[in-house]
Nucleic acid binder design. Structure first.
Length: 299
DNA sequence: TGCAATT
């Protein structure tokens, strides 16, 4: 439902047709979603900006891929490979190198043991075309990688249906956010599809930490104008990192903003940076006060 | 100073 809210607003703001953005959630699928979705843009430049802004963005434990959608066709179906028996020393890059000659790799992943952080010797590789995947199986199944003691198994991956937790994509509004003094977006994190880049504060979901809840960090924004809207909050906070939700609190009768709102961000460091940067920010004729939400909420 | 919730 939040999903439909997000995509509903997206459609409202950007509407229909033309360029397609393909999203792929790395590290497994979530909820009943298959882990990916499509967004249509009216303007190619908007699609371009969505890609450059959101690709590689970390959301919870995931890193999203955002790229142009490949045209749908039977030739790209069932092109995902399951590889097992890999030497534990082989990294994602090494596995990709081994398979690259068979075709264009759409994505890849080496499974890692949660506790030890070491490779489990299992990988997935999705090729652009099923024929490429078939070639790779023919050639590499039962083969030993250079220096390996055991042969690897290469076969088609099982059809997609693992169930996991659900999470949401923060839309990023189309106005250039630089005027909010936000950081250039995620230069260091982009393309680092590694589970090592997990927020080090997320293990600290402690009771004493302000603003923290089970899903990210809630930020209190005070001194919004009467006609503040959610779009403003997305614009202000989006540049600092993964924003999962924004809310402008309005009077039920007048529908005017009561002067404050909330923003949820996934990663502590990004939330802290947003607060440090936006607290005291002048929005119109008002000086914003931005802080972690306090827990005075039980009535 | 002001910290929600009409899914």
């Amino acid at each position: 439902m939040f999903f439909s809210f997000v995509f509903g607003s997206f459609q409202l703001f950007f509407s229909f047709v033309c360029f397609i953005v393909f999203l792929f959630f790395f590290f497994s699928s979530l909820g009943h979603s298959l882990g990916y979705g499509f967004v249509n843009y009216l303007n190619p430049s908007d699609a371009e900006r969505a890609i450059s802004t959101l690709n590689g963005l970390r959301l919870q434990s995931k890193t999203i891929k955002v790229s142009y959608a490949r045209p749908s066709s039977d030739t790209i179906k069932d092109a995902n490979l399951y590889i097992s028996g890999l030497p534990k020393t082989m990294m994602q890059k090494d596995v990709e190198e081994m398979f690259a000659r068979y075709g264009r790799i759409i994505n890849s992943r080496v499974l890692v043991d949660q506790a030890s952080g070491l490779s489990r010797g299992v990988a997935f590789i999705r090729f652009d075309k099923r024929a490429e995947a078939e070639e790779a199986i023919k050639d590499l199944n039962g083969q030993k990688p250079p220096g390996a003691a055991e042969p690897i198994t290469v076969k088609f991956a099982a059809s997609p249906n693992q169930v996991k937790n659900s999470q949401i994509i923060p839309p990023n509004y189309h106005t250039p956010p630089r005027r909010f003094g936000g950081p250039v977006h995620h230069q260091a994190q982009r393309f680092r599809f590694s589970p090592m880049s997990v927020d080090h504060m997320s293990g600290m979901s402690g009771v004493n930490m302000p603003g923290n809840s089970s899903s990210g960090w809630c930020i209190f924004v005070y001194n919004l104008g009467q006609d503040a809207d959610e779009g403003m909050l997305w614009q202000m906070f989006g540049p600092f990192g993964a924003v999962t939700n924004v809310k402008v609190i309005r009077d039920f009768n007048t529908n005017k903003c009561k002067g404050f709102g909330f923003v949820s961000m996934t990663n502590y460091e990004e939330a802290a940076m947003a607060i440090a940067s936006l607290n005291g920010y002048r929005l119109g004729d008002k000086i914003l006060q931005v802080s972690f939400k306090t827990s005075k909420s039980h009535k």
